[in-house]
Each structure stands twice: as C-alpha cells, then as structure tokens.
Amino acid sequence: MATILVVGEQAHGHLKKATLSALTAAQQIAQKTGGQVIGVLVGVGAGEAAKELAGYGIPVHVVEGAAFDHALAETHSAAAAEVAKKAGAGEVVIAATAYGKDIAPRIAAKLGAGLASDVLAIAGANQFKRAMWAGNAIATVEVTTPVKVVTVRATEFAAPQKAQGAGTVTPAQVAAPQPKTRFVEFNEVKSARPELTEARVVVSGGRGTKGDFKPIEQLADVLNAAVGASRAVVDAGWQPNDLQVGQTGKVVAPQLYVAAGISGAIQHLAGMKGSKTIVAINKDAEAPIFQVADYGLVADLFKALPEMAEAVKKLQ
C-alpha cells in the first residue's frame, strides 16, 4: 500500500495540463495497488500551482526557494526524490514532457528504481504499455524493482474530475544540492495560439508549404487551432523547433488534425495517429498520409487551405 507520487509541472504558478494526465495514470496505478496518490510541485510558483493540483483531492507538497528557481534537472530531481523517499513512494509518476523527460531518469537513479518511459497505458501493478520503433510496435514492459518511476504520454490519459474536497498543500523542506549547471537564458517562442499538445484542433504544414505558412495560419485562425509542423519544416528553420510533431517531437491527439503538404513518414505518423479525425491535403494522391486520413483531399494546399478557411467561416 505504498504511496504514489505525482511530480507535477508548472510555470509561473500555472499547473501544466499534462500533470493532470499524470494524475490520472497515478490513480489507475492506485486502483491496482491500493496505494494513496500524493503530489509534489517544485520551483517558483509551485505554491500557487499546488492549490490547483490539490483541487483534485490529493495532498500536495511544495518545494520552493531560490535554489529551485530554475528547472535544473539536478535540483528538481533531488527535490522530487527526497519527497518520494520521505513519503515511502512505491511509484513516481511524471508526464513525459521535456521537463519530465529531463528529470525522471535522475529521480529513478536516486531511488534505485526501474523506469518505464512514455507510457501509453497501465497494464498491471508493474506492467506498462509503451510504443517502440516509431510506434511500429507496442511493448508491454515489466518493471522489476520495488520502486518504479513512470513517465506517461499525456494524450493517452484524460484529465480526472475535480474532487469535492481539496487536499492539503504543505511546504516540504528539502536540502538543495549544489548544481553543476547554471541557467543562462530562455528564448521563449511567444504565440497567441493554443498550445500544440493541448489544442482541440491542430493544423500542420510540411515541406509542401515551401516555408510559406500563411495558408496554415489562416486556417488555424478560423479554427482556433494550434500550428504544427513536420521535421522537414523545422529543420529548414521555417518554424520553431517545438512545433515538430512526431516520434522525436511532440505527440498530439486533437479532435481534428489537418496535415497539409506532409507526406506521412512513419516518424510523423507516430506523433499524430491518435488524433480523432485526420484530414490530409496533398497534391500527390499516392502520399502515405492518405492511408491514415479519415478525409483525404488531393489538391494544392495553396488553393485548398484558403478555400477551407472561407468555408469554415461561413459555417460559423
């Protein structure tokens, strides 16, 4: 009946949605093990974000202080591992975001735990499903260590319902290690659009755009969609890196995914084939993207996307 610790993620006091997916996964593990779910948040704003997480009915620990201001893997993993140890956690669950991927292995190493990464489903008390070979295979893995660390793919776990009563929020005192890394700067890519991994609709462009994303953005505007891209596009520097959808970029599963000028390489499909409805617009009728698309349109995207934006506007 060990405790299950959710290591949350927040920025400026706002809880990241992916944390709620981690919470759902933790609750599913709790159903198998009978353990109790608790949370921890680390860094500036953790106290504020903790209130939100505690609203789901779990006690949340907060680690704040100058030593934890920046999300350095060394300090944040140390804080989470110490809270896990004090709570006697049997499982530590984290969303597989850039932050989660950075810190989870260090937490596992500190706890002597086996780590199941980017998990799609909880298959048993110590068994988890995960994708391998760019999603060409789904493996069931068994973690053989007494303590387990699990990172979860947020798109596979819906956020839980808010609870009636909120859990407690308590500051945790943890020793701050002297890190060997120093934060220098963050070059934020500002965007007024919904976040790629959280949006209801995603409009993605590929090499077929030749770098001109105006038609993509126009359609995204009328659909209140996030903009995504293939690797070819970000490699060329046409769009910021963090818009890459795929095996080695972001995994998205919106209600609607529009792929325009994207051929549909397996590495791209790995990041979007969980979408509810997929639309492909490509001028090559043989493009592999059509094999996963619910609706395929063989057309020039520079003609089709503006037309589509107009047609959607008329509907609204």
Binding site: I138, V279, G296, A299
Partner: peptide, 25 residues
C-alpha cells in the same frame, strides 16, 4: 530492471475516404 514481456502490432487506422473538393470536406 525493465523487461520487455510482450510486443504487439499497433492498432491500425484504416484509410477513410477521398473527398472531391473543399466544400465536401
């Protein structure tokens, strides 16, 4: 520490329909 106990093919998505034009889409 982490054993692979089973490997399965991923769920397949079946191709949908081709639409003739933007209006239909």
């Amino acid at each position: 520490k982490v054993k692979v106990v089973k490997v399965e093919p991923p769920p397949q998505r079946t191709a949908g329909v081709k639409v003739p034009d933007v209006q239909t889409l």
